[in-house]
Design a protein around this nucleic acid. Structure first.
Lengths: 190, 190
DNA sequence: GTCTATACCAAGATAGAC
DNA sequence: GTCTATCTTGGTATAGAC
């Protein structure tokens, strides 16, 4: 009855699936990407693919986790958390399919029954806490007004990033990062 | 060959479908609401329901249009456009299923191929223009700083409302309208 | 009263998750 | 393969313009 954990082969395959899925979804969005298609893209049957992730929902959750990790890897050295957020939002303009996966999936997962609900609960909480610290740091060095409530502004910046990325899909000329920066300028102490 | 337009009966049934759909979706969210269920809720077969709207996508678009109209009816008399937005966000806490329909659908419709893409393009543009006017009005009466760019702040307020409503599904104690009001306080001239 | 577009239904084709 | 979801096809009944 002892569980043995994944073999090296399985770990590699898992990696391959996530990389490929990220690629396919970034290109064509996720609504149009079936498990069937993802399976054949990595040379597996549907059942074979689902063996690794259990369900489509769990696979997509893993894709988003992988993206979060990639963001950390690109920006992990940066001190300024608020600047990090702006950099991520700017970078996301280049991967609309992923942004669409993220926004659709997070909206759907609002339902507590949804398989990825817990993932988002934890993710948003982690982001809020990190950003609140970053905001307090900026208040110390004088780039954000002391009148701002760090927790509320953290919630606000995340919501703003999410909302801007959705809206920009309907207004191709708009640059989400510019709006974020305009707000940060207005939040400077006088 | 000539088109005759809907009969009185059809007009009434269309109304009934929208009202009922709004009710069912507000209660249980849209992910769990099938056309089959909506059809039987109004005493029609699935084909009968689709006869009126052509597709599920178009039906959901009509539901969102109906909600927009209901909001206008509730708040049409109000002068202050920014205050209107806050009131809508506050009211939306009472209809989580509808909020979920709206956010999921708008995220999905980011794909230009999506049937409701055009609807959202027009809706966001209309909202932005109306809000920008409201912001200029507030700048005139001194409740928003003259340093704010009305177009950017309009985009921001819409994005913020959307994002806050998504985030609040993962943080039940949070009240989106409070964060909006905190921002408005910070945007006051000094 | 005739005529035809509208209102609707039964059955099934198709496709996706698992 | 099974189950469930959307949507199509091919039909009948009826509203309502003329």
């Amino acid at each position: 009855m002892a569980t043995r954990g994944p073999y090296a082969k399985g770990v590699a395959k898992r990696e391959e699936i996530l990389t490929k899925a990220l690629e396919v979804i970034a290109r064509q969005g996720y609504r149009k990407t079936s498990t069937r298609e993802l399976a054949s893209a990595v040379g597996l049957s549907e059942a074979g693919l689902l063996h690794y992730f259990g369900s489509k929902e769990k696979l997509l959750e893993a894709v988003l986790r992988a993206r979060d990790e990639a963001d950390v890897e690109r920006l992990g050295d940066r001190e300024d958390v608020v600047g990090k957020l702006v950099a991520i939002v700017r970078h996301n303009s280049d991967v609309p399919g992923l942004v669409q996966l993220y926004s659709t999936f997070s909206a759907e997962a609002g339902d507590p029954q949804h398989g990825a609900h817990e993932y988002f609960v934890e993710r948003y909480q982690r982001l809020r806490e990190g950003l609140a610290d970053g905001i307090r740091a900026r208040q110390s060095d004088g780039t954000i007004s002391a009148a701002a409530d760090p927790e509320k502004i953290a919630t606000l910046l995340i919501a703003l990033s999410d909302g801007l990325q959705i809206q920009s899909q309907f207004q191709p000329d708009a640059e989400p990062a510019d709006v974020l920066n305009h707000l940060l300028a207005l939040l400077r102490p006088v």
